[in-house]
Design a protein around this nucleic acid. Structure first.
Lengths: 335, 335
DNA sequence: CTCCTTGGTGCAAACGATTGCAACCGATCG
DNA sequence: CGATCGGTTGCAATCGTTTGCACCAAGGAG
């Protein structure tokens, strides 16, 4: 905890004016080299550090991008943040992070607050209502949405149409004709997309698709166990890997063999999916890349261009041991 | 993307001076109620929002706390961030996040940058060298270290002495006399602490403790599999749950029964630990609380007080199926 | 009817930096 | 030898807000 050294202190010590110091430090070309050297030396000696806040204040737009995520502890969002953070930092920006706790009202409050400090906003898997989103987009800063499509904003998303098709084709290839989807949070746009694309693809592939509500974490999957068991489906698709792993856990605890009695597959392929028992078949997507692309859209926009077309990332199916051939006879079993 | 409305615009529209508007909006008591009402109305109508940056700039210290974490995607850090974020937000502060990617040099750069924007710093599981830490503490803002003890700074940490004792006593209670520790990143202070306290407690309990180097993620644990198998230990303690789960996975893939052939226990108890196969015995710690306590120390310090005594959190052992009685005969097996 | 209080308001200085413009210097040129 | 010019430097305004202080009208007291 030392004292702050200001420009004026350096000026006094160097025997010049603040303007000269400022110019010397910022590499202006209309300053004599000797003075530059001298000022630099003095500044270094005094340990001068520009007050970035004053600097940015004077210069205009804040070099900060505000980000909202529903849940900091969800590996999906962590990795998006990781990618976005790296890209933004490389571009000279910093990340101001807000967590909405999966609550649309809280997210709206966050947006309202972040916008005061940020030159741009990234809404990751926004849980905002339609009206809330409109309000957010009316803010005087550019906004990029990750995993949510919307007009008049940047959009970076996973191609769920392709994703759902990959999943269902894999399952039908194994002989499954009846599939159950264990859904995510009701406020999640991507859950909606997964349902929509699954339904559509199921129809095309002549698969019977049932749906139940779930959530976004391990215990949501675990709790869905009994319902899943009593369904007539031979394969289950879960909203994400956490739900999938929770479900696998229930199956194990209750003696249901996976995949011989039931196949389980999921979206996202977070790192831990490879280590579940059995390892989870899942859709790998480049989450960090989502963050990077969001930043790219932002820089283009900040550069004055219009919003580019949405970036769609196509996932890749990673087949592991949790999916296998459909069993022949109907399961008859007490819970 | 609308235009910014400034204080002066509101003043002009309301037919008063900027000072009056400022005071009316900030609830000063030396303004007549009618004027306050009028100004408020005009401001609302114009959609005025104070420029927080100008405000904070004028007011002094930035209401932002900079945080560094080694890895955003590690659940341990995510949860610390969650707690810290919630506490700081409640206190009117925002979080500026930096990720060092487990790299001490990068962390030093981050500190250097964050300090320009922050009124306080929180170093979470700092990988900084001793010298680097000194440098960080010389910054003109208060610094709290999470999971690292140091003088002249706030300290919030997990009580690894108690932690290691809980683990080893649990294992000796099951008859284990030879334990292997699979370590974490070399730059990690907490790995050092875990080793130190394990050694000390092992001596006290007359347990033979071996150590190997590992890392912080699932594949580090998986890769350690062969070495673990060939060791003479009947129980393994891993640096964290990710490593533990990776190790369990290797054991499963190679037909080693856990816990009948080998017991595995770990530190941290991240949520997914309950869903591994078998579920992992681990030390539950309140990570979010670490963040909250860090914030508490910070507020005290910002309030002018000296640094409080370090906060030590004692973890709780959660016994699950990955630990069991030590096998009687020596394991004889080819890799 | 003064004079003084007091409650309400505006002026202007500040926060720490950047930058347009004017001023200054020595040197060159007419 | 004075005007001009290119190269440096300093003055002062500016970003949007807060706040100490001066000021002014109205009302109460003497």
């Amino acid at each position: 905890m030392a004292e702050r050294v200001r420009l004026i202190d350096v000026a006094r010590e160097a025997g010049t004016s603040v303007s000269t110091v400022s110019r010397a430090l910022n590499g202006s070309d209309l300053i004599s080299p000797e003075v530059v050297a001298h000022v630099r030396a003095v500044a270094g000696q005094l340990g001068y550090r520009a007050d970035k806040r004053a600097q940015e204040f004077k210069l205009g737009r804040p070099l900060t991008v505000g980000v909202t995520v529903p849940d900091l502890t969800n590996p999906f969002f962590s990795e998006v943040l990781k990618g976005l953070n790296a890209a933004a930092r490389a571009g000279g920006y910093r990340l101001l992070i807000g967590e909405s706790s999966e609550d649309p009202a809280e997210e709206l409050r966050l947006v309202d607050e972040l916008v005061d400090y940020s030159g741009a906003l990234v809404l990751c898997s926004s849980r905002l209502t339609r009206a809330g989103l409109e309000k957010a987009l009316a803010q005087p800063v550019p906004v990029v949405c990750i995993n949510r499509t919307v007009k008049n904003a940047g959009v970076v998303a996973i191609d769920y149409r392709a994703a759902s098709r990959l999943l269902l084709e894999h399952l039908t290839g194994l002989g499954h004709r009846r599939v159950l989807y264990v859904g995510g949070p009701a406020t999640s746009w991507s859950d909606g997309e997964r349902r929509r694309t699954l339904r559509r693809t199921a129809r095309a592939l002549d698969v019977t698709l049932d749906e139940i509500d779930g959530g976004w974490s391990g215990n949501h999957g675990y709790d869905a166990g009994p319902t899943v068991l009593h369904s007539r489906a031979t394969a289950v698709i879960t909203f994400n890997d956490l739900v999938g792993i929770g479900l696998l856990s229930w199956m194990y605890d209750n003696g249901v063999e996976v995949p011989s009695e039931l196949s389980v597959a999921s979206y996202d392929d977070i790192p831990i999916a490879a280590y579940s028992r059995p390892p989870l078949t899942s859709l790998r997507n480049e989450r960090a890349k989502l963050g990077e692309l969001a930043w790219e859209q932002l820089t283009k926009r900040l550069g004055g261009a219009d919003w580019p077309a949405p970036d769609l990332l196509t996932p890749e199916l990673v087949v592991r041991a949790s999916t296998g051939p459909a069993r022949r006879r109907a399961r008859i079993r007490a819970s």
